[in-house]
Design a protein around this nucleic acid. Structure first.
Lengths: 346, 346
DNA sequence: CTCCTTTGTGGAAGCGCTTCCACATTTGGA
DNA sequence: TCCAAATGTGGAAGCGCTTCCACAAAGGAG
């Protein structure tokens, strides 16, 4: 059916070992022979059969990416960074989606035993010690992205500091009634951002008010980092009436978009009645003029792949922890630019 | 290292053939034996090695998805539909990205010969007759999504009719100076939507004006279906001054978002100074109140997978052509709801 | 010119499965 | 009771590669 290494060998008048050496640049082979073989390879359009190669080499040249919910622009942007880098290394990318039906443990067990991938990127996934132990025992290279565990390599972002800076920025605009809309606390970025928010309040002698914190509802197993959750959370804050906060730090841009819709529906104005700072800096933030903490998602994806490939190909020591910086992008929704000209808005 | 079928066989006191039959529900096997084997399988946490299985069976239980640019919310939504359905069938999904460095032909050739996937979904990809011929010769099951070729199965949307309805809707609002912002014409949806637009004009005795049609610029190999391209295209229309159109049909929501930014920057109002109808109905369209033609992206992805799996597992006859309907979603940007209450806006 | 490296090459073995064939065992009909 | 058919089972062969080993040929040193 397909052209195999035997076809190439016969045609080139050499043995299969020689063909293998020619296409893999391995072993010693005479330049002339190699040239001849490669010519036949091109002529016949030969490419090694992936499964056969995988079986013999015990490497598939494929990496797996596990993503929860596969929704949200954060993942898309990350995925773009990952995808680009993966193909640069000549790897393929298998996408696994964790949701209600595909439980995390099932996917991990499957992947570990089937050996369909050479390594895994786990995105925004909280890992239990037990799971980590099993992962390490399997010796499959793993890099966590946007989550942290002491015993695994990880690429994260300064969530605590980012939330702190965002909150501080609102304080500096003169606000003292500052709320927060957060994702579900099973997500560690959500937990850590909450800490940053509280720290900022504390450092500026503002008391934390329980009613100003809204954790996005836990809808059908999701993490609350979505538009609808943001919308409903803001509705809840607005119910406080005249006691409502005058500014809100929202833990993701996509929630902020939902939140702004709720504000608008109430006939209120952003930033005059309610200032908003988001988190992520998704592409649309720029368009709608959302002030936000930028997270270098593309770069995070890229770096995670670099590290993973390094783990796969070289012998490396454990303990890679990269923490990216966030940066405050000031636009219209925080009120800081209220009196400046339109042109200065990014 | 890993647990193999031999380990299971030895432990269960049977031959490897029997283990294989037990885990694959194939051949004849005594219920008692099967039970015993499966117990050992569970005990040892055994799972067949994917490459070995792929080599022996000549099936990988993996399907490939080829996406151009991997950007745009259209693909994300489609991908969600695909992903869900793929995992329902117990397949894995490999993502291939076509861009400047990874040329389409390279990817196709690679995939065809390596046999890493059992079938392929090609998204928004224009295929030459030559390519199609090569694909068919390889006998690898293929389903086109959002593009069309007479000799391949496809899942598409009524682009011509959709564009027609969108344009007609603007005409019915009383507009006669109606522009169009389209994607690059190398994309067949872009071409067909242009036809729909022209047909609608013709059927209502409105002359086509060349200066009212803006093809989004061909930036770094992309198709123009992005926010920036929409923004620049609208800038161009606005340069017409008082001769500018009073309504524009934009061939994708994401371009429409960019276009609306340009309008806003000019101090003009949507829909009063310029009515807009988009195409796609991405999630954000609802949020910003964009009138648009809904394309059932999620369902398209789902159906494409169903068909592909059918092609892989059964012997099927060629010629599957599913055309989904689009539907007009009236929101704020077309002016139709100008005099109605806020609540009626979806 | 010999002997010992070095370099190059063919092909068997083995990767972990599925499948097929041969054989053993059971069943049931006459 | 006996025999043919049905049922169940073990394991060899083979999927298409890589890798290793044995060996041939070609240099290089003396």
């Amino acid at each position: 059916m397909s052209v195999t290494i035997y076809d190439v060998a016969k045609r080139a008048g050499v043995g299969i070992g020689t063909v293998s050496r020619a296409i893999n640049n391995s072993g010693s082979i005479a330049p002339r022979t190699k040239e001849k073989v490669l010519a036949v390879v091109k002529e016949l359009g030969y490419r090694p059969h992936a499964s056969a190669r995988g079986l013999a080499r015990r490497r598939t040249n494929t990496i797996g990416v596990v993503v929860p919910f596969f929704t949200g622009y954060f993942f898309v942007e990350l995925l773009r960074g990952i995808q680009g880098e993966v193909s640069k290394f000549q790897y393929d990318l298998i996408l696994y989606n964790v949701d209600e039906t595909n439980k995390k443990e099932m996917i991990l067990r499957k992947v570990l035993q089937e050996r369909k991938v050479d390594g895994m990127l786990l995105i925004s996934l909280e890992m239990t010690n037990n799971e980590v132990w099993e992962l390490r025992r399997s010796r499959l290279p793993i890099v966590l992205v946007d989550s942290y565990h002491p015993d695994l390599d990880s690429v994260t972002v300064e969530n605590r500091r980012g939330a702190y800076v965002a909150t501080q920025h609102l304080i500096r605009q003169g606000h003292s009634r500052i709320g927060m809309i957060d994702g579900h606390l099973k997500s560690s970025p959500a937990r850590v951002r909450l800490e940053g928010y509280k720290n900022a309040l504390r450092d500026h002698d503002i008391g934390f008010r329980r009613e100003y914190l809204v954790i996005s509802d836990y809808v059908t197993g999701e993490d609350g980092f979505n538009r609808k959750a943001g919308y409903q959370a803001m509705k809840q804050l607005l119910h406080l009436g005249s006691n409502r906060p005058t500014a809100v730090f929202v833990s993701s841009d996509i929630q902020a978009i939902g939140a702004m819709k709720a504000i608008e529906e109430d006939g209120l104005n952003v930033p005059n009645d309610m200032a908003i700072v988001g988190f992520d800096d998704i592409e649309l933030a720029q368009y709608i003029g959302l002030t936000t903490m930028r997270q270098p998602m593309f770069e995070m994806g890229k770096l995670a792949v670099d590290r993973l490939v390094e783990c796969i190909t070289d012998v490396v020591t454990n303990g890679f922890k990269k923490v990216f910086h966030t940066s405050l992008i000031v636009r219209n929704t925080c009120g800081a630019l209220r009196h400046q000209s339109h042109n200065q808005i990014t």
